[in-house]
Write a protein that binds this DNA or RNA. Sequence first.
DNA 1: GCCGGAAAGCTACGCCTATTAGCCAAAGGT
DNA 2: ACCTTTGGCTAATAGGCGTAGCTTTCCGGC
Lengths: 206, 206
Amino acid sequence: MPRAGLSPDVVVRLALEVVDAGGPSGFADLTLAKVAARAGVAAPSLYKHVGSLADLRREVTVIAVRELTAAGTSATVGRAGADALHALADAWRRYALAHPGRYAATQIGADPDDPADAVHRAAGEESVRTVVSVLRGFGLPDERVVDAVRAVRAGVHGFVTLELGAGFRMREDVDQSFTVLLDMLVAGVAALAAPDPAQATTGSDR
Amino acid sequence: MPRAGLSPDVVVRLALEVVDAGGPSGFADLTLAKVAARAGVAAPSLYKHVGSLADLRREVTVIAVRELTAAGTSATVGRAGADALHALADAWRRYALAHPGRYAATQIGADPDDPADAVHRAAGEESVRTVVSVLRGFGLPDERVVDAVRAVRAGVHGFVTLELGAGFRMREDVDQSFTVLLDMLVAGVAALAAPDPAQATTGSDR
DNA sequence: GCCGGAAAGCTACGCCTATTAGCCAAAGGT
DNA sequence: ACCTTTGGCTAATAGGCGTAGCTTTCCGGC
């Protein structure tokens, strides 16, 4: 009975392979049995390295969130304003399209009350920090930053989710549609920063 | 040995109860065992009324998509332009917040090749039709309609998804953030209709 | 009013998952 | 060399979907 040379890190790495091999539903379909098969080991053996399937999912999620964050930050260094926002959104979308399973993992929300989710929570906040930095470059008033962050996250995340979920027909035009959406968001954020001209729409404030 | 008085429709109704009782993950957590428990029946008995769990999910999905569509259309009758778009988006968001489990069901994409998904596919197209109608009121050129539809769907869907997934802290400001996002989308769609940089809001020419 | 068949329950089973318990061999430090 | 820790294993429990086959109830036709 030879050893398989597993370790917590190796198990997580194999889990990532399973997620990547499963397409957009790779994360939802992540199973200890599949990881064990890839490791050449019986399923219960994994418990020597991992607490539970939930733990493994959590670790995969944190890695994915950090990768997404890193993609965003590295895409925006040396850029500002609309340029930076485009680069950030493009980086997010590219990551999602290149690693749909991992991206799905990032959609999981951390439980605000669960201490086990503390790392996950911190990773999410770190990710938001990138967006905040980029948007601050637009000179937004502090109380509007949160609105802008939410709008950008919602737009990009929604687009990518719909795209991955086969929500769009006419594949060819998807890039253009994404550009259009981004232009809307950039213009909207810019308008939030400088609400003086006659183009204030109907929005008002509350 | 008494009969439970089940029928396909009753089983679907019970499934909807299970989905509704399960919060945002109610659809993902839908299980034949739970439906059977609610019906007061052993799980295999359900197969007299339903082909499989997948079938039951499909039926739930179609109902949810149709309800979401109906919420959108009924909210936009007699409205046009920015008014209609606001009403449509509000209706979507209200539906999602009121029925998070059913809304999650609507996120499932129909398989373009699976004949069993034909009804699902049709329901989805019907839903898109509402958005197209509303956006046509902005006088968009035909080739931009698809971009606008995608932007609006992405923005609203992304926002609601993040909101349901506990992606937002500071609950109080969420309504305002949604309004801000909608204003961006309205202005963006209007700008698509009238691409003069001068005025970005009045989209009612043509 | 009876009776036969279809419909709607049931139990038992097979196969999949996660997870726990307890055993045994391999690695490695002393 | 030994002996402890560690990392595998098998066996078993619990819960999920789905199938097979049995039994009971209901209803329509006589």
